[in-house]
Computed example of a mutant assay.
Amino acid sequence: MSVNNHLSGTFPVIPTPFSAEGDIDLKSFKSAINYILECGVDGVVFPGLASEYSYLTREERLETTKLVGELTQGKVPFVVGASASTPEQVIEYSVHGAQAGAVCAMVMAPNKFAGDEQAMVNFYKELAQKANIPVMLQNAPAPMGAGMAIETVISILKQVPEIRYVKEETMPCGQRMEQLLAAAPDTLIGVFGGAGGRYIIDELDRNALGTVPACELTEVHKLLVDAHNQGQFEKALDLYCQMMPILNMQAIYRCSLTKQILFERGIITCPQVRDTGPKLDAKNIEELKKLYAKLDGLMPALKA
Protein backbone atom coordinates (compact mmCIF):
# COMPACT_ATOMS: atom_id res chain seq x y z
CA MET A 1 0.00 0.00 0.00
CA SER A 2 1.14 3.56 -0.61
CA VAL A 3 -0.36 6.09 1.79
CA ASN A 4 0.71 9.67 1.13
CA ASN A 5 3.51 8.13 -0.92
CA HIS A 6 4.65 6.11 2.09
CA LEU A 7 5.24 2.39 1.66
CA SER A 8 3.77 -0.14 4.08
CA GLY A 9 2.39 -3.68 4.15
CA THR A 10 3.47 -6.88 2.43
CA PHE A 11 6.25 -6.52 -0.19
CA PRO A 12 7.34 -10.02 -1.35
CA VAL A 13 10.63 -10.49 -3.15
CA ILE A 14 10.12 -11.77 -6.70
CA PRO A 15 12.20 -14.91 -7.41
CA THR A 16 14.18 -15.51 -10.59
CA PRO A 17 13.03 -18.83 -12.12
CA PHE A 18 15.54 -20.81 -14.19
CA SER A 19 15.21 -23.61 -16.69
CA ALA A 20 16.79 -27.01 -16.04
CA GLU A 21 19.74 -25.75 -18.10
CA GLY A 22 20.16 -22.76 -15.78
CA ASP A 23 18.87 -19.98 -18.05
CA ILE A 24 16.28 -17.45 -16.91
CA ASP A 25 12.77 -18.72 -17.66
CA LEU A 26 10.93 -15.53 -18.58
CA LYS A 27 7.57 -17.26 -18.90
CA SER A 28 7.84 -18.59 -15.34
CA PHE A 29 9.16 -15.19 -14.23
CA LYS A 30 6.01 -13.50 -15.49
CA SER A 31 3.89 -16.25 -13.92
CA ALA A 32 5.54 -15.71 -10.52
CA ILE A 33 4.96 -11.95 -10.73
CA ASN A 34 1.30 -12.45 -11.64
CA TYR A 35 0.86 -14.91 -8.76
CA ILE A 36 2.25 -12.36 -6.29
CA LEU A 37 0.07 -9.57 -7.67
CA GLU A 38 -3.03 -11.76 -7.54
CA CYS A 39 -2.46 -12.19 -3.80
CA GLY A 40 -3.30 -8.50 -3.35
CA VAL A 41 0.13 -7.50 -2.07
CA ASP A 42 0.97 -3.91 -1.21
CA GLY A 43 4.10 -3.85 -3.35
CA VAL A 44 6.97 -5.94 -4.70
CA VAL A 45 10.76 -6.01 -4.43
CA PHE A 46 13.17 -7.18 -7.14
CA PRO A 47 15.88 -8.31 -7.16
CA GLY A 48 16.67 -9.25 -3.57
CA LEU A 49 18.57 -12.02 -1.88
CA ALA A 50 15.59 -14.29 -2.56
CA SER A 51 15.95 -13.43 -6.26
CA GLU A 52 19.52 -14.81 -6.28
CA TYR A 53 20.63 -11.40 -7.48
CA SER A 54 24.32 -12.10 -6.93
CA TYR A 55 24.07 -14.96 -9.46
CA LEU A 56 22.56 -12.79 -12.20
CA THR A 57 24.62 -11.13 -14.90
CA ARG A 58 24.38 -7.39 -15.44
CA GLU A 59 22.36 -7.93 -18.61
CA GLU A 60 19.96 -10.31 -16.83
CA ARG A 61 19.37 -7.84 -14.02
CA LEU A 62 18.69 -4.98 -16.39
CA GLU A 63 16.28 -7.03 -18.52
CA THR A 64 14.32 -8.53 -15.62
CA THR A 65 14.13 -5.23 -13.72
CA LYS A 66 12.64 -3.55 -16.79
CA LEU A 67 10.10 -6.37 -17.08
CA VAL A 68 9.07 -6.06 -13.43
CA GLY A 69 8.47 -2.36 -13.97
CA GLU A 70 6.27 -3.07 -16.99
CA LEU A 71 4.19 -5.74 -15.24
CA THR A 72 3.64 -3.77 -12.02
CA GLN A 73 3.08 -0.31 -13.52
CA GLY A 74 -0.14 1.20 -12.23
CA LYS A 75 -0.78 -1.80 -9.96
CA VAL A 76 1.54 -1.74 -6.94
CA PRO A 77 4.70 0.12 -5.88
CA PHE A 78 7.91 -1.49 -7.11
CA VAL A 79 11.07 -1.33 -4.97
CA VAL A 80 14.20 -2.10 -6.96
CA GLY A 81 16.90 -4.10 -5.22
CA ALA A 82 20.13 -2.42 -6.25
CA SER A 83 22.70 -4.10 -4.01
CA ALA A 84 25.93 -5.06 -5.78
CA SER A 85 29.63 -5.53 -5.13
CA THR A 86 30.71 -2.04 -6.25
CA PRO A 87 29.26 1.46 -5.72
CA GLU A 88 29.23 1.99 -9.48
CA GLN A 89 27.01 -1.05 -10.02
CA VAL A 90 24.67 -0.02 -7.20
CA ILE A 91 24.17 3.38 -8.76
CA GLU A 92 23.61 1.90 -12.21
CA TYR A 93 20.98 -0.55 -10.93
CA SER A 94 19.26 2.17 -8.88
CA VAL A 95 19.05 4.56 -11.82
CA HIS A 96 17.86 1.78 -14.13
CA GLY A 97 15.24 0.78 -11.58
CA ALA A 98 13.96 4.34 -11.35
CA GLN A 99 13.70 4.48 -15.14
CA ALA A 100 11.74 1.20 -15.03
CA GLY A 101 9.23 2.71 -12.60
CA ALA A 102 10.64 1.81 -9.18
CA VAL A 103 9.64 4.19 -6.38
CA CYS A 104 12.50 3.26 -4.04
CA ALA A 105 15.92 1.57 -4.18
CA MET A 106 16.74 -1.08 -1.55
CA VAL A 107 20.50 -1.15 -1.04
CA MET A 108 23.01 -2.88 1.22
CA ALA A 109 26.31 -1.11 1.65
CA PRO A 110 29.02 -3.07 -0.18
CA ASN A 111 30.76 -5.44 2.24
CA LYS A 112 34.09 -3.78 1.64
CA PHE A 113 32.80 -0.80 3.67
CA ALA A 114 31.94 -2.92 6.72
CA GLY A 115 33.37 -1.25 9.81
CA ASP A 116 34.06 2.03 7.99
CA GLU A 117 31.19 4.37 8.88
CA GLN A 118 32.47 7.35 6.92
CA ALA A 119 32.88 5.24 3.79
CA MET A 120 29.28 4.09 4.17
CA VAL A 121 28.06 7.65 4.62
CA ASN A 122 29.92 8.74 1.49
CA PHE A 123 28.55 5.75 -0.42
CA TYR A 124 24.93 6.45 0.49
CA LYS A 125 25.33 10.19 -0.12
CA GLU A 126 26.55 9.58 -3.66
CA LEU A 127 23.79 7.03 -4.23
CA ALA A 128 21.12 9.44 -2.98
CA GLN A 129 22.35 12.18 -5.30
CA LYS A 130 22.25 9.98 -8.40
CA ALA A 131 19.41 7.51 -7.85
CA ASN A 132 16.56 10.06 -8.22
CA ILE A 133 14.35 7.94 -5.93
CA PRO A 134 14.25 7.43 -2.14
CA VAL A 135 16.55 4.81 -0.63
CA MET A 136 15.83 1.85 1.66
CA LEU A 137 18.94 0.86 3.62
CA GLN A 138 19.05 -2.92 3.93
CA ASN A 139 20.95 -3.97 7.03
CA ALA A 140 21.51 -7.69 6.57
CA PRO A 141 23.84 -9.72 8.80
CA ALA A 142 27.25 -10.91 7.68
CA PRO A 143 28.28 -12.53 5.41
CA MET A 144 25.39 -11.36 3.21
CA GLY A 145 25.59 -7.80 4.49
CA ALA A 146 27.61 -5.58 6.78
CA GLY A 147 25.46 -6.24 9.87
CA MET A 148 25.86 -2.64 11.04
CA ALA A 149 25.35 -1.61 14.66
CA ILE A 150 22.19 0.42 15.28
CA GLU A 151 24.32 3.41 16.23
CA THR A 152 25.98 3.26 12.83
CA VAL A 153 22.65 3.04 11.00
CA ILE A 154 21.31 6.04 12.94
CA SER A 155 24.44 8.05 12.16
CA ILE A 156 24.07 7.30 8.45
CA LEU A 157 20.38 8.26 8.51
CA LYS A 158 21.17 11.61 10.11
CA GLN A 159 23.74 12.40 7.42
CA VAL A 160 21.77 11.06 4.43
CA PRO A 161 18.14 12.25 4.72
CA GLU A 162 17.26 10.65 1.37
CA ILE A 163 17.26 7.27 3.13
CA ARG A 164 13.55 7.08 3.97
CA TYR A 165 13.29 3.42 4.96
CA VAL A 166 15.37 0.71 6.60
CA LYS A 167 15.00 -3.03 6.12
CA GLU A 168 16.41 -4.42 9.36
CA GLU A 169 17.49 -8.08 9.27
CA THR A 170 20.31 -8.23 11.79
CA MET A 171 19.34 -10.16 14.91
CA PRO A 172 17.45 -9.54 17.13
CA CYS A 173 15.44 -7.73 14.47
CA GLY A 174 12.52 -6.56 16.62
CA GLN A 175 14.63 -5.07 19.38
CA ARG A 176 16.86 -3.33 16.87
CA MET A 177 13.84 -1.89 15.06
CA GLU A 178 12.51 -0.44 18.30
CA GLN A 179 15.89 1.12 19.11
CA LEU A 180 16.15 2.51 15.61
CA LEU A 181 12.68 4.07 15.62
CA ALA A 182 13.33 5.66 19.01
CA ALA A 183 16.46 7.49 17.86
CA ALA A 184 16.11 7.95 14.09
CA PRO A 185 15.71 11.41 12.54
CA ASP A 186 12.31 12.60 11.31
CA THR A 187 13.39 11.96 7.72
CA LEU A 188 13.04 8.21 8.31
CA ILE A 189 9.52 7.11 7.39
CA GLY A 190 9.86 3.69 8.97
CA VAL A 191 11.35 0.21 9.11
CA PHE A 192 10.48 -3.02 7.29
CA GLY A 193 11.23 -6.54 8.47
CA GLY A 194 12.68 -9.30 6.34
CA ALA A 195 14.54 -12.46 7.30
CA GLY A 196 11.92 -14.55 5.49
CA GLY A 197 9.16 -13.36 7.84
CA ARG A 198 10.45 -15.56 10.67
CA TYR A 199 10.19 -12.75 13.23
CA ILE A 200 7.21 -10.94 11.76
CA ILE A 201 4.99 -10.84 14.86
CA ASP A 202 7.70 -9.31 17.03
CA GLU A 203 8.51 -6.82 14.25
CA LEU A 204 4.90 -5.73 13.77
CA ASP A 205 4.40 -5.48 17.53
CA ARG A 206 7.32 -3.03 17.55
CA ASN A 207 5.78 -0.85 14.80
CA ALA A 208 7.40 -2.21 11.66
CA LEU A 209 5.75 -0.80 8.54
CA GLY A 210 5.50 -4.28 7.07
CA THR A 211 7.55 -7.15 5.76
CA VAL A 212 9.77 -7.99 2.77
CA PRO A 213 9.83 -11.81 2.72
CA ALA A 214 10.42 -14.44 0.07
CA CYS A 215 7.22 -15.25 -1.84
CA GLU A 216 6.47 -18.93 -1.19
CA LEU A 217 3.76 -18.08 1.39
CA THR A 218 2.56 -14.76 0.03
CA GLU A 219 -1.11 -15.47 0.76
CA VAL A 220 -0.38 -16.09 4.46
CA HIS A 221 1.98 -13.14 4.83
CA LYS A 222 -0.64 -10.83 3.35
CA LEU A 223 -3.39 -12.19 5.63
CA LEU A 224 -1.14 -11.91 8.68
CA VAL A 225 0.01 -8.33 8.10
CA ASP A 226 -3.54 -7.18 7.33
CA ALA A 227 -4.91 -8.93 10.43
CA HIS A 228 -2.28 -7.30 12.64
CA ASN A 229 -2.94 -3.87 11.13
CA GLN A 230 -6.65 -4.33 11.87
CA GLY A 231 -5.98 -5.21 15.50
CA GLN A 232 -6.74 -8.91 15.02
CA PHE A 233 -3.67 -9.98 16.96
CA GLU A 234 -4.79 -13.51 17.83
CA LYS A 235 -5.58 -14.21 14.18
CA ALA A 236 -2.15 -12.89 13.18
CA LEU A 237 -0.48 -15.09 15.79
CA ASP A 238 -2.41 -18.17 14.62
CA LEU A 239 -1.32 -17.56 11.04
CA TYR A 240 2.27 -17.15 12.17
CA CYS A 241 2.20 -20.46 14.06
CA GLN A 242 0.77 -22.26 11.03
CA MET A 243 3.45 -21.10 8.61
CA MET A 244 6.42 -21.17 11.01
CA PRO A 245 7.46 -24.80 10.32
CA ILE A 246 7.90 -24.00 6.64
CA LEU A 247 9.76 -20.77 7.41
CA ASN A 248 12.03 -22.86 9.65
CA MET A 249 12.94 -24.99 6.62
CA GLN A 250 13.26 -21.90 4.47
CA ALA A 251 15.94 -20.56 6.83
CA ILE A 252 18.14 -23.48 5.72
CA TYR A 253 17.13 -24.17 2.13
CA ARG A 254 16.15 -20.62 1.17
CA CYS A 255 15.69 -20.27 -2.62
CA SER A 256 15.52 -24.04 -3.07
CA LEU A 257 12.46 -24.22 -0.80
CA THR A 258 10.79 -21.15 -2.27
CA LYS A 259 11.10 -22.50 -5.78
CA GLN A 260 10.03 -26.01 -4.79
CA ILE A 261 6.69 -24.70 -3.50
CA LEU A 262 6.19 -22.53 -6.59
CA PHE A 263 7.03 -25.55 -8.75
CA GLU A 264 4.67 -27.88 -6.87
CA ARG A 265 1.91 -25.30 -7.31
CA GLY A 266 2.51 -25.06 -11.05
CA ILE A 267 3.55 -21.39 -10.90
CA ILE A 268 7.03 -22.04 -12.29
CA THR A 269 8.09 -24.94 -14.51
CA CYS A 270 11.36 -25.87 -12.78
CA PRO A 271 12.76 -25.53 -9.22
CA GLN A 272 16.31 -24.98 -10.51
CA VAL A 273 18.50 -22.59 -8.49
CA ARG A 274 21.90 -21.01 -9.09
CA ASP A 275 22.43 -20.39 -5.39
CA THR A 276 25.19 -22.63 -4.02
CA GLY A 277 23.61 -23.16 -0.58
CA PRO A 278 21.89 -26.35 0.69
CA LYS A 279 19.33 -27.94 -1.64
CA LEU A 280 16.22 -29.92 -0.76
CA ASP A 281 16.50 -33.66 -1.29
CA ALA A 282 13.65 -36.16 -1.73
CA LYS A 283 13.07 -36.57 2.01
CA ASN A 284 13.04 -32.81 2.52
CA ILE A 285 10.45 -32.44 -0.23
CA GLU A 286 8.31 -35.13 1.36
CA GLU A 287 8.47 -33.29 4.71
CA LEU A 288 7.73 -29.97 3.01
CA LYS A 289 4.55 -31.38 1.47
CA LYS A 290 3.37 -32.58 4.88
CA LEU A 291 4.00 -29.17 6.41
CA TYR A 292 2.31 -27.44 3.48
CA ALA A 293 -0.77 -29.60 4.03
CA LYS A 294 -1.11 -27.97 7.48
CA LEU A 295 -1.88 -24.72 5.66
CA ASP A 296 -5.09 -26.21 4.25
CA GLY A 297 -7.60 -23.41 3.72
CA LEU A 298 -4.90 -20.74 3.60
CA MET A 299 -2.95 -21.86 0.54
CA PRO A 300 -4.09 -23.61 -2.67
CA ALA A 301 -3.44 -27.35 -2.85
CA LEU A 302 -0.27 -28.55 -4.56
CA LYS A 303 -0.79 -29.76 -8.11
CA ALA A 304 1.70 -32.63 -7.91
Rank of each mutant, 00 (worst) to 15 (best):
Y292F: 10
S94T: 05
R164W: 14
E70P: 06
E117I: 14
L302W: 04
G40R: 04
A114K: 08
Q179G: 12
E59W: 06
N132R: 11
I156P: 10
E162P: 10
K125D: 11
L56W: 03
A214C: 10
D186G: 10
V79T: 06
G174C: 09
L188P: 06
L71T: 13
R61K: 13
A140T: 15
K279Q: 12
T57R: 03
E168N: 06
L49T: 15
Y53G: 03
G194D: 07
E151A: 13
V95D: 14
P271M: 01
S31F: 03
A20D: 08
A105Y: 04
S94R: 00
V13E: 00
Y55W: 10
P47R: 00
N111S: 13
D275N: 10
E216I: 02
F78P: 02
K289A: 01
A119I: 05
D42P: 03
V153L: 10
A131T: 09
D116R: 01
N248Q: 14
Q138A: 14
N284W: 07
A146R: 00
T10V: 12
F192H: 11
R274W: 12
L247Y: 08
P47T: 01
L127E: 11
L26D: 02
L62G: 07
I163D: 12
E216Y: 08
L298G: 05
E52L: 03
E203V: 02
L247W: 05
K125W: 06
M243E: 13
